[in-house]
Every structure is written in C-alpha cells, then in structure tokens.
C-alpha cells in the first residue's frame, strides 16, 4: 500500500529446486495519492526440477487518478515440463461504486474502507491472526484522508 508521493518497489522470489514442487503467489497492491507501486516477481525453475507448477496472481487497486501500479514478472524456466502462470489485474474504485454506497447511506470514506478491505481480504485471511489485525489497522491509518 502506497500513499502521497511514496514510491514502492516490492517483490517476491520463488525458486523451484526440487521435483514436483508447487507454488502460489498472490500479491495485492493498493496505490493512493500520487504514489507509484511496483511489483517484481521472480519465478525460477532449475534444470533438475521437473513437474513444477506455479501460479502467480498480481492485483492492483488504484484509489486516485494520479497514482500508478506496475507489474514486472520475471520468469526463468530451465525445465520444459514446468507450468508457470502469471495473471495481473488493475482496478479502480469507480464513481458509480461510491455513489451506490452513498445512496445506501454509507459515507465516501467508509465506503473506500469497505472496498479496500474487501479487496485485501483474500490475502489478509491467510495471515496469522495477530498480524492480520495489525495489517488491517495499518491499512486504515494509511487510508485516512486519501480519498479524492
């Protein structure tokens, strides 16, 4: 999650060494304000690792029209039996979504919070409880006054 004029360059590395190994990577980025958020994901499959399976999903959510999100997949496969997938999406909270919430009585700031939490839920649910609570609070603080 980036806000204001932050620039983040984050990423993951997944190196498959053993045979028949599997991995799933889910990355969710949120950009607000004038921030830029970049994700780099290395997936490497070594020559001896046959039957490897990897799935990478990289989603970005934009909260303003002045922020950006970038995804750079690095895929280095040295064994031809590997199946490596990469999927990326970028979405933006739309005026229509906000108006829909407003019409039901939910103020804009709260609506953004709902939508962002919904978006991050898939990842949050996987975190250990203590950390998930912390992450949620962090999200709230970063979100404050980021609407516009």
């Amino acid at each position: 999650m980036t806000n204001n004029r932050q620039q983040a360059d984050t990423g993951t590395k997944m190196i498959h060494i053993g045979r028949n190994t599997r991995s799933t990577i889910v990355s969710k980025g949120i950009s607000a304000g004038h921030s830029e958020n970049a994700y780099r994901g290395l997936v490497k499959v070594l020559p001896q690792a046959s039957g490897v399976r990897n799935y990478t999903q990289c989603d970005s959510l934009l909260l303003s029209s002045t922020c950006g999100a970038h995804t750079f997949p690095y895929i280095d496969v040295q064994n031809e039996t590997a199946v490596v997938e990469h999927e990326a999406t970028t979405s933006k909270i739309s005026e229509d979504q906000l108006f829909y919430c407003n019409q039901r009585g939910i103020p804009t700031e709260e609506a953004v919070g709902l939508i962002v939490n919904g978006y991050a839920k898939e990842v949050m649910n996987k975190l250990p409880m203590e950390f998930a609570v912390e992450a949620q609070k962090l999200l709230q603080i970063t979100l404050e006054n980021s609407v516009g």
Partner: peptide, 12 residues
C-alpha cells in the same frame, strides 16, 4: 445495480 467485489452483502 453496481457490483462491489470483495464486499459481502452482510458487511455492506
């Protein structure tokens, strides 16, 4: 009606 992915009807 507008779709809001990830937000359950209950929470909404």
């Amino acid at each position: 009606p507008v779709e809001i992915p990830g937000v359950s009807m209950v929470n909404f």
